[in-house]
Amino acid sequence: MRMPAFVRLTIRNIVVNIDPGTLIFMLGLPTLYLFVMGFMFQGINPNGGLVVQYHGIAIKYTTFLAPGIIALQAFTAGNIGGSMLWSDRRWGMFEQIMVGPFRRSEYLLGIIFVSIIFSLVGSAIMIGFALTIPVRFNITPAGIGLFILTMVVGTMLFSSIFLIISGIAKSMQAYNTITILLFFLLDFASTAFYPITNSTPGWLHVIAGGNPLSFISDILRESFISGVDYNSLYYSGILFIAMLIFFVLSLRVYKNIRSGI
């Protein structure tokens, strides 16, 4: 039986991207965040640990942090996906593939699929690590369904953002500078690590509130902690629309990437 072209490209992307550097970025960094930040912040309050109020529920900081770290997998996998295009352009493989038995759309599908696979596998590993802390998750079928959907949509959103950067960056330095800036901005100005409270400065409130990573983190918290409700579906809808907008934009940029020049 013939293997579809995008599946072959997905396999190729997996083989090429399973290297120590990528694995450390994808799994090592979030694991460190989970254990080091989790335990250090948890230890701030010596009397029973740090407690965070979330949707009126008092939860341990580690339980609050874990969904944020899981959400990070959508960001890192999306980053890896977008970087694949950059790397292939940089090392001549984009053109090499384009002169082979593939269409542009199949190449793009290969990148999106591998990002989703990395995101889901990475988040499953993070859930496993989180459960060893242990964190108190309330796992339901609806919660699992929403978690998978959110990770897929979130990964596609970040893949699209990084594909746009890969498509327009003219040099390695420009690409690296933009991605590092985005990495810090999106990671730390989000609700992945800490909640937005009344004492959060207004400007940071706006940035963190509009950050897609905050949306993913909060939807995952509702999936695993407070339970799925209309509120979670509403935020999922916004995330989906944002993903569609960036996906269309990334397609336009991708279409205009000239090969052979």
Partner: peptide
């Protein structure tokens, strides 16, 4: 191709 092209 004239330029190098390889998988990492």
């Amino acid at each position: 191709q004239q330029e190098e092209s390889f998988d990492f």
